[in-house]
Structure formats: C-alpha cells, structure tokens
Design a protein around this nucleic acid. Structure first.
Ligand SMILES: NC(=O)c1ccc[n+]([C@@H]2O[C@H](COP(=O)([O-])OP(=O)(O)OC[C@H]3O[C@@H](n4cnc5c(N)ncnc54)[C@H](O)[C@@H]3O)[C@@H](O)[C@H]2O)c1
Ligand SMILES: NC(=O)c1ccc[n+]([C@@H]2O[C@H](COP(=O)([O-])OP(=O)(O)OC[C@H]3O[C@@H](n4cnc5c(N)ncnc54)[C@H](O)[C@@H]3O)[C@@H](O)[C@H]2O)c1
Lengths: 226, 226
DNA sequence: GGTGTCATGTGAACGCGCGCACAAGCGCGT
DNA sequence: ACGCGCTTGTGCGCGCGTTCACATGACACC
C-alpha cells in the first residue's frame, strides 16, 4: 500500500485460473524442449494443454514472457519464466504427515523431486510406523515435526492421515511454520488466513464422475446400444 | 416420449460448481446423521462444508430437497437425495489400470467401497505384476480389460500408469466401454465426447501452492503475528 | 527494399458463479 | 387464535473467466 506496484518478478497478481494452467503448459513445454523444439505457437501449446489458443496467449501475457509475432514463443524462455513464477526458482522441500498406504506411495513418487519438491521428511503418530525406513527416509514422530521443518527448511506439508486426524495434523504443520498444505484426507480443515490449503479429494472426484454418468444414463434415452 | 415430461429424478442440469460441493455436503451430513442429528440449517451445513450459507441454500434448491422454513433441512432426506443425484443410488464398480505404487495404495483404500465405489478389478501391462494378489484381488493383464468390465459391470476407470502410458490406458478403457475416467497420470489425454475424464494432478497442486508461497514471500513484507 | 503471411496481443461481449439482502413461510409460545 | 422469531428461497448486482475477432507487428522471400 505504501509503495507503488513493482512489476518486475511476479508482483502483479496472476488470475487463479491461469495459475492452475501454468503447470500444464510447463509439462508440455518440457516435452517440447526434450524433443529439441525451440519455438512454439499459442495454437501448438493450446493443443498440448487441451485449452483454447486465445486463453494461452492471455495467460502468457500475465507473465513477462512475450512472444515474437509471426513466430511464436521461445520454449526455453517460457520454461524458465513459468518455473520462476511457480516455484520461485528454488525447490520446495515437502513434509508428509501420515505414512500409511497413501503416504508410502507418495514417498516413493519420483515425480516429487523431478518437479522441485524433494521429500524433506516423514512423520507419523503410530509408534509401530515411527523408525521404519520408507523410500530411504526414516519415519519420525509427530513431536519432531517442528524441528524437522526447521532443519530441512521444508515449506510444504502433505496430510495423508485419516480424516479424523486431518485437523490435528494441519494444526501441527501450521505450528511448525508450514504455510502451504496439501490435504488428501476427505475433511474440511480450518487454517489461519496466511496458510494456503488445497484439497485433493478422491471420493469427491469419483462422485462428480458418478453424477455425470448417472445423468447420461437416465436423461439420454436416445442411446440404447453400446 | 411424445410430450416433454419434466421428470423429478434429476432431469434438470445442476451447475458444475454445485455438483463439486455436493460430496462435501454429503460428508458433513453423514457425520451429523452418525451423531444423531436430524435437522440442520443452511448455516450449520455451510460451516461444516466451509462455504457460504446462501450458497448452500441455492445448491440444495437445485435438488428436490426442500427444507422447512424456520426449522431447516432433514438430514436423512438430504443424504438420500444427494446420494441419489451423485451415484444414481447404485454402487459404481471401479477398474484400476496400472498397479504400481499409487495403484496399490488405491487398491487398499477402504474409502472406495464405503463411498459406493468397490474395486471391480486391477489390470497391469507388466507380466511381473500380473497374477499377483493386491488387496485381495488378482492383477489381470490389460487385454482382459474388456471382459473384466463386462463381467463386473464396472463403470469407472482409474488410470495409475506412468504419464507416457496414460493415453494408451485411456484408450483401452474407452474401448472396454468405460465412460467415466479418473486420471492420476500427469498427462492431458484425449477422449471421445461421450467420455468424461477428471484429472487428479499432484504436481499441479504443489506448483499452485508454490506460486502462492512464492508470491507471499516476495510481495508481502508485512506479516501479522498471531 | 517492398510485400505478403503469419502469429501475437488485446478490446469487448457473453456466461457463470457467488454473495447480499429481502420477502415469504413455518412453527412455537402465549 | 395470534403474533413473533427463525429459516428458507431467490432476485439482483458484481466480478471472474472464456472466447471471438481484429489490429499490430515481425520475419522471410523475392
Ligand atoms: N489410496 C489411498 O489410500 C487414499 C486415496 C485417497 C485418499 N486417501 C486418504 O488419505 C488418508 C490416508 O489414507 P491411507 O490409506 O494411507 O490410511 P492409513 O490408515 O493406511 O494411513 C494413515 C496413517 O496416518 C497415521 N496417523 C493417524 N493419525 C495421525 C496423526 N494424528 N498424526 C500423524 N499421523 C497419523 C497412521 O498411523 C497411519 O500410518 C485418508 O484420509 C484417506 O481417506 C487415501
Ligand atoms: N504417489 C505416487 O506414486 C503418485 C502420486 C501422484 C501421481 N502419480 C502418478 O501416477 C502414475 C503412477 O505412479 P506410480 O508411482 O504408481 O508408478 P509405478 O511405476 O510404480 O507404477 C506404474 C504401473 O503402471 C504399469 N503400466 C505401465 N504401462 C502400462 C500400460 N500401458 N498399461 C497398463 N499398465 C501399465 C506398470 O507396469 C506399473 O505397474 C504416474 O503417472 C505418476 O505420475 C503417482
């Protein structure tokens, strides 16, 4: 408020819908870079991302990644620009709370480190799980969460506990200084205003699919054969 | 149908944003029902779901679940009404393609059957995986997918293969008659118009979190303690 | 050096979704 | 029986997001 707006490195607000598409663009761009492609048009990138071309152009206009008229966008430039906006250029270590079925699968997910999200540590409340080695990392008790975050500089917390323990797990993460949380438990959690929570809810996704399927099979009588 | 009959069983289109919230309402309502609560107001349900109360009322108005003015909504009625809209009242068996780290975790997820999505079968392309028993189910080869779907009446497919194989896996599912697909692979897949695909992308979620975190740490210099 | 062709960048319109605010209606207490 | 308080149901305005359509501008070829 006291100082004017600086429009250098990602100071202006990017629309949320655009932010959600940037990772998809980034994936496509990395594929292109691997294939040796150096420039890409908004139409080409739109096809890779499955969105409208005008949407791509408007999205990229929010970044400081201007393209060349008549040619397109420089792939390498876009990659670095989007990476900078999304991750700040630095990796974000991740702490996983709850090392059950899902937590173990996540621990072994190689896409984490590839995407700039290395596993900083695993914690669990079950003494039978604590001390065991999962994916090369020893599971630590929940009361060591704060020190674990402090040691590793973890900035992201993943909640993979049962729903009943999700709010408690989130509380521990917030108390440890984590401000970005990804919650896999099917539970609405409350957090302070400065903490960002994103929900990944498998059951919800399936039920949304179920709605559309149900609607097609009951509302559409013109389709009989399969 | 010679006349345009307005059926009462979910014929009018429900807004997509509302559909996405219905599962959250349902979870809260089931908790209330477990606690013996029989009626709930829009304010109470809004708190449970973490949304605005007027939004709840408008959402429920799309269903045929009218409440009683001055009292609220009947919990049991809402549960059955939302369940009917979302799942058609019948369970939707699920086929999982790709039984790796994630596929195994999903197979053991008890929330599936609890939510009306029992595991109908598991398939994988790796001969080393085929034949092994995971969570009480034997993994079958991909070329048995069509017969598996036919036998079990599976209506939902989950893709848990590497990204490079996602499009192929989706193709198999579509060929087998599946019209609802949940894709965990970080890959944009193409499907016919009558097939519904929902993407669950972990890396995307983390990168969105990363954007907000990066924005806070660089743009926001004033932080309120508390 | 001129011109044609191509792709970017953006103005404007449309639709959707959200939330406020208020009227309508139901039940309970007196 | 009657009024009061509580809650539903919704009309309306606002903002966001998406898309079309077009003007602007760069590059390549002749
Ligand atoms: N495939 C899946 O398993 C899957 C898929 C989608 C969502 N989910 C959700 O993810 C969550 C975990 O699922 P899961 O199958 O791994 O369950 P799980 O029971 O296998 O694992 C839960 C783990 O959390 C630990 N835990 C419990 N309370 C804790 C606490 N207060 N603090 C720290 N750790 C605690 C437990 O000791 C256990 O190790 C659940 O909420 C589930 O609904 C799971
Ligand atoms: N925690 C996680 O592991 C995690 C989290 C989020 C997303 N994902 C995504 O989920 C997918 C699977 O991850 P994963 O860790 O389980 O990988 P994985 O390598 O452990 O498992 C992949 C499985 O798919 C099978 N497969 C390969 N090609 C196939 C094909 N054409 N048809 C059928 N099956 C095939 C393989 O044999 C293997 O069993 C990946 O796309 C990954 O990016 C994983």
């Amino acid at each position: 408020m006291t100082e004017p707006t600086r429009d250098r490195t990602g100071d202006e607000p990017i629309p949320e819908a655009t932010v959600a598409r940037l990772p998809v663009y980034l994936r496509g761009l990395l594929e292109l870079a691997d294939a040796g492609v150096e420039t890409v048009s908004s139409v080409g990138l739109a096809e890779l991302a499955g969105v409208n071309a005008a949407n791509v152009r408007k999205d990229l206009s929010y970044l400081h990644a201007h393209g060349t008229r008549g040619v397109g966008y420089e792939v390498g430039h876009l990659v670095s620009e989007i990476s900078l906006v999304l991750g700040g250029g630095r990796p974000s270590p991740v702490v996983i709370v709850g090392v059950g079925n899902l937590g173990r699968a996540l621990s072994r997910y190689d896409g984490f480190v590839a995407g700039g999200f290395p596993i900083a540590g695993l914690v669990d409340a079950d003494p039978a799980v604590v001390g065991r080695k999962v994916a090369g990392t020893v599971v630590r008790p929940v009361d060591e969460l704060a020190s674990l975050v402090a040691e590793t500089g973890a900035t992201v917390g993943i909640v993979a506990t049962p729903a009943a323990a999700a709010q408690e797990a989130v509380g521990h993460l917030v108390a440890a200084g984590i401000r970005s949380i990804l919650n896999f438990a099917p539970s609405v959690v409350a957090v302070p205003a400065h903490v960002d929570v994103r929900q990944v809810d498998l059951a919800t996704e399936l039920q949304i699919l179920g709605y559309h399927q149900h609607r097609r099979t009951t509302g559409d009588t013109s389709r009989a054969a399969g």
